[in-house]
Nucleic acid binder design. Structure first.
Length: 288
DNA sequence: CAGTGGCCCTGTCTGC
DNA sequence: TGCAGACAGGGCCACT
């Protein structure tokens, strides 16, 4: 599942291969891939064709390409989305959802998505210069690796919430880029339980869980940083890196790397939550 | 209005 | 062997 590190690898690859090129043709192959573009596929094609890509930007799990029109092509990979650079000669992939060609002899950009939770849209950019953000991304908080992310502001917002800590970490309006995998790993590193009521989290604990999220995402980023050179990013974003590094996610029944207690998996928010029952004891008042 | 649960989607795996 | 059901889960939307 692409979370912040995986999306950043894709962004860096696109920056290298697509920036400064001009779109010559767009082919939408599946309607769900553009369902977030309210004006429909023909309108999206019209807004892209003839436009030059001027940058590749990201906030959290959203990726966008500012265009010379003042708009941007916004992409979200969802559960299984991929953006690939492919020779025009290459055969269509089974899950090819959209294709973007350029007016030079270089390779094309393809959007693939098996489970179709992801999608493309063209949106107006709000703001100027590098700080500009597409309208559809404006409601998302800065991500934890953004140098401008404000830990104190996050802490104050956290304390006004009445929910569980993991829910808050997954809430992209508080901090973006963290999904189920990194939430579980960050909570384990910070020794905090997922059902900890947000209004009881103190400032050092909030700092701990943010630092933990940053550490695990930076490690994943460093490990995944070369994959785009092969013009391919794995569907799951799970390279061999995860098998070696994940302490609790997907490790139910296996010993906690810190204390040896078997890792527990619990259904939570219609998802899996993994934690060490000894390192991360359940709070007296648990908030799910 | 904040918080919560349901739903979308398809390929893989498990159990009967 | 075959089939039904569980599971994976980000984000949107309806409901309380």
């Amino acid at each position: 599942v692409p979370e912040l590190p995986e999306v950043e690898v894709v962004r860096a690859g696109i920056e290298r291969y697509v920036v400064a090129r001009r779109v010559s043709a767009v082919d939408v192959r599946h309607p769900r891939a553009v369902r977030r573009h309210a004006a429909g596929a023909p309108d999206l094609v019209a807004r892209l064709t003839g436009r030059q890509v001027i940058a590749a930007a990201r906030r959290g799990k959203y990726l966008w390409l500012p265009l010379d029109s003042g708009e941007a092509l916004v992409a979200h990979l969802g559960m299984s989305g991929q953006l690939l650079i492919r020779s025009s000669d290459a055969a269509d992939e089974v899950h090819l959802r959209a294709r973007i060609k350029f007016d030079d002899a270089g390779p094309e950009l393809r959007f693939l998505d098996q489970r179709t939770f992801g999608g493309l849209a063209v949106d107006e950019l709000i703001g100027v210069g590098p700080a500009a953000v597409p309208s559809s991304v404006a409601h998302i908080a800065r991500d934890a690796l953004d140098p401008a992310f404000d830990d104190d502001r996050f802490f104050r917002a956290l304390r006004t919430r009445r929910t569980g800590l993991k829910r808050a970490l997954l809430d992209q309006t508080l901090v973006s880029g963290i999904g189920n995998i990194y939430a579980d790993e960050a909570l384990w590193r910070a020794r905090l339980h997922f059902a900890r009521p947000t209004e009881t989290v103190n400032r050092p604990e909030a700092g701990r869980v943010l630092d933990a999220a940053r550490a695990v995402m930076r490690a994943a980023l460093a490990a995944g940083g070369t994959s785009f050179d092969h013009l391919y990013v794995d569907v799951n974003g799970r390279s061999g890196y995860f098998d070696r590094v994940l302490a609790v996610y997907g490790q139910a029944g296996r010993p906690c790397p810190r204390c040896g207690t078997p890792v527990r998996r619990e259904a939570f928010m219609n998802r899996s939550s993994h934690h060490c029952p000894r390192c991360q004891p359940r709070p007296r008042r648990a908030r799910w």
